[in-house]
Design a protein around this nucleic acid. Sequence first.
DNA 1: CACCATCAACCTACACCTAGGTAGGCGACA
DNA 2: TGTCGCCTACCTAGGTGTAGGTTGATGGTG
Lengths: 200, 200
Amino acid sequence: MQTLGTKALILDVALHRFAEHGYNGTSLNEIADKVGIRRPSLLHHFPSKEALYRAVLLDAFADWFALLEVAVAGDVKRGWPQVERVLRAAFRFFEDHPDFVRLARWEALEGGPMLSQELGDLLRPFFDRGTEFLEREMDAGRLRRYDARQLLLTGYGAVLSYLSDASLMTSLLDVDPLSIKMLAARREHVIDVLRNALQP
Amino acid sequence: MQTLGTKALILDVALHRFAEHGYNGTSLNEIADKVGIRRPSLLHHFPSKEALYRAVLLDAFADWFALLEVAVAGDVKRGWPQVERVLRAAFRFFEDHPDFVRLARWEALEGGPMLSQELGDLLRPFFDRGTEFLEREMDAGRLRRYDARQLLLTGYGAVLSYLSDASLMTSLLDVDPLSIKMLAARREHVIDVLRNALQP
DNA sequence: CACCATCAACCTACACCTAGGTAGGCGACA
DNA sequence: TGTCGCCTACCTAGGTGTAGGTTGATGGTG
């Protein structure tokens, strides 16, 4: 049942590998082997390792941007309920796309193969929209006052680190941090902390 | 004025390189060049790349463990003031040891060159002591109730991500995230958020 | 003091492997 | 007959690690 074309299959396998071991830790041979072709055949579909990586990264982020667009559409609610709505949407996305989380983390750490700047530019509009929303709600007294940009970065760290650093979490928690149960516990915890910090 | 012996100099340079580019992204040639010797001379001091990496990592963590010992010594205060005391000590350490932060992040992401388990074992006692402290204070009503372990992990993510993902922060903030001013802003922000989340 | 053995720290040269990427051929199929 | 997708064979760069030699400091001994 391999409905995926070879190209899509390559992207799929590469996403897993890059997410797991990063750019430097992944070889084209590994990817090709898992796809079931030889390396030169892989390079027939993508001109270079870096081109493949870019394609993987942009694909992954396209999904994330699409979700963000939907999640913030209309600013349906105000104050904390809207924050919680977006948070839950984000959590659901991250839980469904663990490879995306790790890929993003590698990219953020490495500064990427000269791609980080570009990604930052794509991320920036969403960051600014988030900032504006938070500032508006704080001004209206519906959220406790903080530096809105710092607050977004705090959310970023609190949400993503747990998911990206799974092996460390396993050492500390003695359970699979990515099990359904632990993911739910994590989600509710973060939301709980932020609610208490944000509600006036 | 090179008061450092060659071995210490190697460790120093290697720490920088591993922190910046990770294990796979760093070659012994780079390190040797920067030290001012040839690679075989470097391998005279450390038997292999992995041995060098282990030495770097254990050194870095030894400093961190030493600080933790001091910071938690005596549980001088109770409730939030003690939490804030430890937080500030940790921030100061991280600001003084940016390479440590990034090294830890690489290690957590990569699962490390088979070292992560070992590191987890070293970290574990501190994690458990933190958990116990928080639970005691929560039971006494001096801190708002959360899952203590989740809370520690939230702190981990919120504090370290900003410092380790500096290149991403630069893209989003348009300023040097590691400047004295921004570091202070970050510190006060995180403490502020956690205070509001934790004080009953 | 003169002599010699030892050893640490460095070097050059080399062996070996794996990586990414290229050249060119072969078969299937429109 | 052309083109697509794949192959084998090959190239080069760069990585880790080893072999073996040089130098210079140390330190015991006649």
